[in-house]
Structures are given as C-alpha cells and as structure tokens.
Design a protein around this nucleic acid. Structure first.
Lengths: 251, 251
DNA sequence: CGACTAATTGATACGAATCAAAAGCGGTGG
DNA sequence: CCACCGCTTTTGATTCGTATCAATTAGTCG
C-alpha cells in the first residue's frame, strides 16, 4: 500500500471504547450488532479517519483493500464520462458502508461533501472474521442488498420519471434519511448543492431550481434557506415520488 | 409455502449428475466452483424448473425463500409504476442469479422472455452451507457486486446519455453477454423485443427504431433480421457507449 | 461593504415523446 | 401455396419537456 492517496486524511488507530461508544452512526452501521468480546480484535483493527470537504478519497480504479463506514458527514459517489458529464450514483450519510463494489469493473469516485469522519476496516480482516462469524458477512450482504435496491429505485426515477417526480422522489428519500439520522420529521436538510442534486437526478440545475419554485408555489414545500426545506404536504410529494400522478397536477 | 404462484412451472428434483454435468450455464454460474463432495447435499437440495414465455414467476412483494440460477433462456426484471409505466431493471441470461435483493423494500417482477430453465436453491440451505463453506457466500457476494455495478452503469446511461449512446451501450453490453454465453463475436442476438429495449433504456420504441436505422445507415451495424445484428464497427459503438462522443457524430 | 459563487428567473432551441400511418413478419386456414 | 389477419417494427409529422444560453438576484466570506 505504497502511494496511498490519502494525503488529506488524518489517521488514528481506533480505540474501541473511545470511538465506538460515542459513535454517531452507531445504530445505523453494519458493525453495530457485532460488538461482542470475540470480535473485539476486529474492531481494534479498524482506523478512524477524517476527510476534508471536497476531497475525493476514493478514486476510479484504485483498488485499496478497505471498507469505510461513514460516521459523520456526507459523501457523493459519481462517475465522470470522458467529456466531463457527471452522474452522481448515490449520496452517503452516517451508517453508509463504502467499498462494497470496489472490485468490480465499474469504477467511480467518492468525494466528501462536507467534513466526513469514517471508520476504516481492512477487507482481509473482514474476510478473516467473517469466516468465523458468518453474521458479519451477512450484515455486509444486507448492506449490499440495500444499496442494490436503492440503485434500482434510482434507475426507475432516471428512466421513467419527469423532473417533478424525480425531485419529489429525492425529497422523500432525503427526508427518510434525515429522519433516521437526525430524527427530523418534516424538515429536509441538504448538505449537497443544486449541481449535486441535478447530477443525481439527471436534469439540469435550472430545472431543479424551477421545480423547487413550482413546489413552493403549490404549497408542497417551504424554504427556510436554500438548503433547508419544510415538507408541507408529504403525502402529495410521496404520491408524486411513487409515479402515481401521470402528467401535470390535476388538482 | 402454500399458495405458490408457480402454476406455470414444472418442478423436478435436481439430480446432480444428470443436471449439473450437462448444465448450459455451468461455467457462468455462482455454483460452478463449489462442486465438491462436501457440498453434494447442497446441490441435491436444489430443484430444476421450467418457465413458459411471458410468465411472471417472481412477483412484487412475494417473499419466497429461494435463489434461482438461470440455466437457459432470458428474463426481464421490471418495476411497474401505478399508472402503468414500466422500467426494465435488468435482463437475465444463463448464469444470472435471481433473488439476491429479495428481502429489500424495493419490489419488482421477473418474467420469462422465452422458455427459461432454472435451478432453485432454498435460501435456508444456502445459509446453512454458507456458514460451513464461507466461499459459497463469497460467490454470492461477488454476484451481487456484479449486479450492483451493472446497476450503476445503467444509472449512468439513464441519467446522462443520449438515445444514441444508450442504444450503443445496450448493444455493447448485449454483445459481451452473447460472447460469454454463446461465443459469438460480432453478432448480437436479441431475445427481447423493441418495447423491452425501450423500457430498459428509458426511451420509446420509436426512438429505438429510428436510432437502429441511423446506426445501420452510418455503417455501425447490419441487420440479419430485426432480432439479429452484426456489429460492423464495434470500436465506434464502444466509444459511443462510453459517452466519449459529446454530441452528434463529427466524422 | 464589495467580490465571488450559488441559485433563480427568463427566452429560445432542440431531442425525444406523442400521435398517426404504413410496412414487415409470422401464423393460420382455405 | 398464397391470402388474410394480428402483431411488431419502421417511418412520418407535430408537440412538448427540458436543455441551453443569458442575465439577474441571493448568499457567503474576507
């Protein structure tokens, strides 16, 4: 592991008691159910990292043998096409496990949106402990199933939905994440900017902006500021997000 | 497992020697590396099925505890939106493993395109044997990694590519599959119809048809019949498919 | 408070959808 | 063997949603 591209990352050995017991993402993470004495060695082998905003910490084609669990902050994973077009594949939040699809032929980048803190687990260690503790690999598989189904839902949005529906889908999804992580009920906090949203939803920033304005004038949402939104009519948004309203609003 | 919705399926216990040793998809399947004496019980627990063309054999929300491995034929998995829009998420071919994301909250259907033959493995059995033979669960994870990366690539196509690029992406992908399965080099055989292709690529049949015609007149492909295509310029198609040509052809 | 970047709003263009019709293809039966 | 029917695919004319280009406004930081 020479030539690690981790310049922007500070590394500290993880002290199980100090880090895990105060972990933000504890109840959201794959590792949570495995805090047993026999897996202590597994946790002690992990490392705690910090990544600065805007830093790409996983690079196209770089095969480093780690899983990362997000404890704090938000990430975007994306593919850049040769001419510069960018498709965001997913956003990562506390509890998101990174590195699952690392050894596939599909390569992409992951970048910190704001300041991100991560736990790093060596794949070898995961493998080693998984063979003794099959529940561990099962937890990973469950994470992966989640990623896969999220990706399918994303494909449905990108393939079949209008701009309105895509944005509603995004808001509802984001709202669910916010609820799980921060316990926020009808408020959505957006760590990403409009470019990120548009590159995630396969439309332009202008369209995102116009659609936000539409939603506000229809009473579906209210802006606190451009990155904080109150969902005024979660029901209707969810209906839109499910693709249950064919064309323009008939109300 | 009362009320199995498997009416259209004939079921036969799998005879390891008879079925596996003549299996079409052998070298392509997750089970291939595990034909050892100690896993004999695992294979003997499997069942061989046949599904008729057009039969939906996995239904939205039906949680039956099986994995299916395709031996022969082709499938489409898809999501139907409330108003009838259909997004095809993936096509299955010999070697495709079905049921990986079954217990997620994202529900979809899988349908036989032509006559399909499958091996059915109970999830319990897979779990049981996976705990003794970690390589088995590893094989499943590798399959899942593959599905996930395919889904990401699909999202890139749907989110950022033009109709031309999407179709090129589809042809190249299909060509790779055909090569792996049937050893065909520059020929692509399409078991699915134009509606399937359009619902996979998030465009209309008309656009698919027009783009095929364009490709033919540009010398990129030649039709043998509407479901058999020769790739005349795989290189240029691959370039298109990679999103490396920004707008309309500049040649 | 001014400078820079992000977000919104406006005018126009374009790619793909939609609506409509013709051509091709496979199966059936006289 | 060919005529006819239904379904799939292709081609054509027009519409529409979103992209693009351009400018203004809001927000952030030194």
């Amino acid at each position: 592991m020479a030539n690690l591209r981790h310049r922007a990352i500070e590394t500290n050995a993880l002290d199980h008691d100090a880090v895990c017991k105060t972990c933000w993402a504890k109840t959201l993470s794959f590792c949570e159910p495995h805090h047993t004495e026999s897996l202590r060695g597994f946790f002690d082998s992990a490392t705690c990292l910090k990544v600065n905003p805007g830093t790409v910490f996983i690079h196209d084609g770089a095969k480093f043998p780690y899983y990362f669990n997000i404890n704090r902050g938000a990430t975007r994973s994306f593919k850049i096409l040769p001419d510069g077009r960018r498709q965001i594949l997913s956003f990562g939040f506390p509890g998101t496990l990174i590195g699952l699809s690392q050894y596939s032929n599909f390569e992409f980048n992951i970048e910190a949106i704001n300041e991100v803190s991560l736990c790093r687990f060596s794949k070898d260690k995961v493998d080693y402990y998984s063979n003794k503790h099959p529940e561990l690999r099962k937890s990973l598989m469950e994470r992966m199933i989640y990623e896969l189904s999220e990706s399918y839902a994303h494909a449905v949005a990108l393939g079949k939905m209008s701009a309105r529906e895509r944005l509603a889908y995004f808001l509802i999804k984001q709202n669910k994440a916010d609820y799980k992580i921060y316990g926020q009920l009808n408020k959505v906090t957006l760590p990403m900017n409009r470019y990120d949203i548009s590159d995630y939803l396969g439309v332009t920033t202008e369209t995102i902006s116009r659609t936000f304005t539409q939603f506000e004038s229809e009473g579906l949402i209210t802006f606190i500021k451009s990155s904080e939104i109150i969902l005024r009519d979660r029901r209707r948004l969810a209906t839109l997000a499910a693709g249950a309203i064919a064309a323009s609003p008939a109300w």
